[in-house]
Amino acid sequence: MQPLFHFAASNLVISAIYLARGNHESRSMNKIYGFEGEVRSKLSEKFVELFAEVFCCLPLAHVINQKVFVVHGGLFSVDGVKLSDIKAVDRFCEPPEEGLMCELLWSDPQPFPGRGPSKRGVGLSFGADVTRKFLQDNNLDLIVRSHEVKDEGYEIEHDGKLITIFSAPNYCDQMGNKGAYIRFEAPDLKPNIVTFSAVPHPDVKPMAYANNFLRMFQ
């Protein structure tokens, strides 16, 4: 059984960073979208393998103060999933195309109840009722996830029980969106959302190291 990281919010200076795995932390996504090519170009093949190994060690989710569930993608195709089920997932592998690990990395919220097919072709879409049931089953208050570009850098959905946060402003130098992050301060853990705009960066074209097939559409 692998650990689901639990950590506490406080008013102290942060002394550690907790990383979570996303859907792009996989060999297939790294190859298609350019990370593998950039690492190989700037470093070496050894580092390509090292990153792949590190990505397989990243936790799939976190819980802050036993109340806030943090994940990259979203929830599940079945009800009744407990934190203990997530802890039991063997994450030290490439993500499968179905099951709990896949859904944690790939799923998205939807504005209507129930579940539906994913616009991505992987994972699923889930409604506010699914969010509410998961929170109740696990005695949690809030879900924080990312995985989707938002114009203002964030969006609050599902009756305030789910926040999408996206920290990359002007995504791929094309979307014009703001970035955002959340600060949770003890003891009430009320989310304080901070937004910001993009700043100049080195002149590297978006997807410069991407798979040649993808560059055909730019």
Rank of each mutant, 00 (worst) to 15 (best):
M1K: 07
Q2V: 01
Q2D: 07
H6F: 12
F7I: 05
A9T: 08
S10A: 11
S10K: 06
L12E: 14
L12D: 14
V13A: 11
V13S: 10
I14T: 07
S15A: 09
A16E: 14
I17A: 10
I17G: 00
Y18N: 14
L19V: 05
A20F: 02
R21P: 02
N23P: 11
H24K: 08
S26I: 03
R27Y: 02
M29E: 10
I32S: 02
I32W: 02
Y33A: 05
F35H: 08
K42D: 04
S44H: 12
E45M: 13
K46A: 14
K46D: 12
E49L: 14
L50V: 10
F51C: 13
C57Y: 11
A61S: 13
H62L: 15
V63L: 08
V63N: 06
I64E: 06
N65D: 15
Q66P: 00
F69H: 05
F69C: 06
V70H: 02
H72T: 06
G73H: 04
G73A: 05
G73D: 02
G74R: 04
L75R: 06
L75V: 08
S77I: 03
D79H: 10
G80W: 04
K82T: 14
K82D: 01
K87V: 00
V89F: 05
V89C: 10
D90P: 02
E98M: 09
E98G: 04
E98P: 00
L100E: 09
L105K: 08
L105D: 09
W106D: 06
Q110T: 12
P111V: 12
P113F: 11
R115A: 09
G116E: 10
G116C: 09
G116Q: 11
G116I: 12
S118Q: 07
S118I: 09
K119E: 12
K119S: 13
R120Y: 03
R120M: 11
G121F: 07
A128D: 12
V130I: 15
R132S: 14
F134Q: 07
Q136P: 00
N138Y: 10
D141A: 13
L142V: 11
S146D: 01
S146A: 15
V149C: 13
V149Y: 00
G153C: 07
Y154G: 03
I156K: 13
D159R: 12
L162P: 02
I163P: 07
I163T: 03
I165W: 00
I165N: 08
F166D: 05
F166I: 07
P169V: 09
P169A: 06
N170V: 08
N170P: 06
Q174L: 08
Q174Y: 00
A180H: 04
Y181W: 09
Y181M: 15
Y181P: 02
Y181H: 14
I182H: 03
E185W: 00
A186R: 11
D188F: 10
T195I: 11
A198D: 12
H201G: 08
P206G: 04
P206Y: 01
P206E: 05
P206A: 04
A208K: 10
Y209V: 00
A210Y: 06
A210S: 14
N212C: 01
F213R: 08
F213D: 07
R215M: 10
R215K: 15
M216D: 04
M216Q: 15
M216S: 13
Q218W: 01
